[in-house]
Design a protein around this nucleic acid. Structure first.
Lengths: 191, 191
DNA sequence: AGATTTCATTGACTATAGTTAAGAAATTAT
DNA sequence: ATAATTTCTTAACTATAGTCAATGAAATCT
């Protein structure tokens, strides 16, 4: 399981044996059951996760309504926006499936980066790549309408449609469940 | 002008004199006139900018229509999503005011980071902070409607309303100019 | 200064999303 | 297995955004 991370990292750079053990020692693996809340709004849970198996959902609660921000699945890194700071989270993290993650924390991370600067460098590079992806998906979201967003999801993350309840998909697309239901119908009749 | 960057960076860590000159030497200042296109869709212009004065807009063109993704103003870092890679940009960067920027490039950056690992570390930390902010604004965008988005803009970046043409604001909010016009009217009559 | 272009507002109309409520289908609990 | 709960769909109605067209205002060009 652990070598999933190494596989992921080695997309970016050659991982020597020394680095390999450094990485393995700076993280540990945990299992969480479906339904587990990893982080609550207002909390300062200082951990980050690399998903090996399963799905984690981030959401906020607004007038008693859950609004899904993101679905993290295999090979996604979940870095809570308060990670490494002492400020409280403004969203929840929930395992919506049984989950296996590799866990990191700032203390271990810091020690590792001091010993292996090339890992900090790698971390920065990967951070930039993820940021670029984030920017792209924000741009795509902004410049499309709900129907287009749903079609895009079907095309690019169709697994989500299978593994996630539809009302959560709806809020992820920024619409109400009833609207998503209608959009799906519309698409069917169009074809 | 140049010490604006130092001021910005020193929010995160103490900048020693040695680092100070390292930073100053790894960037240079440029002026661009209003209307200058810094980056075209498809291009691989490999530079990043820290805005000292003025406003840069990123946008894409879809069926002949410009859709604004972001407005970068003073103290914003513009890191094109293809920065450091060789992949073509999927958006444009345009100076919508006369602009003074501090320019960086990957080559100089790499050299500097090798000499001063603490700068790479700083860069990673700042990157994480920016990423967290990006995530927050994406979340806010997703979970609000056009009127709320406009009110939020009024509250948090009211300077933009003054300095940017309204139809660009509209596309930034993900709506048509006519709709923004109506939203503004609606807000006025509500008050 | 005058002409040209761009921009913002408004109106009429259409399309789509939100709201509320009801019922069916699927899932979960006992 | 049955009951309880949650999820999805549908319908009627409302609110809001998109579209198209026209007009006046503002900015830009020469």
């Amino acid at each position: 399981m652990k070598n999933e991370i190494l596989k992921y990292l080695s997309k970016y750079t050659k991982i020597t044996h020394e680095l390999e053990s450094a990485i393995v020692n700076s993280t540990f693996i945990e299992h969480f059951k479906k339904g587990t809340i990893l982080l609550k709004e207002g909390d300062v849970c200082i951990e980050c996760y690399f998903i090996l198996k399963g799905c984690i959902r981030s959401y906020i609660v607004e007038n008693g309504e859950e609004k899904t921000i993101e679905f993290y699945t295999e090979e996604y890194a979940v870095t809570p926006s308060n990670y490494g700071t002492s400020s409280p989270s403004n969203y929840y993290l929930e395992c919506i499936e049984n989950v296996i993650v590799s866990v990191g924390n700032p203390k271990l991370e810091k020690e590792t980066f001091q010993k292996y600067p090339e890992l900090e460098s790698l971390s920065r590079v990967i951070g930039e790549v993820i940021m670029a992806k984030n920017q792209d998906s924000f741009a795509k979201f902004k410049t499309s309408n709900p129907e287009e967003r749903y079609l895009d999801l079907l095309k690019n993350r169709s697994d989500l449609i299978q593994r996630v309840p539809q009302h959560q998909i709806a809020s992820y697309l920024g619409i109400k469940p009833e609207s998503l239901s209608r959009i799906r119908k519309r698409i069917l009749t169009k074809k």
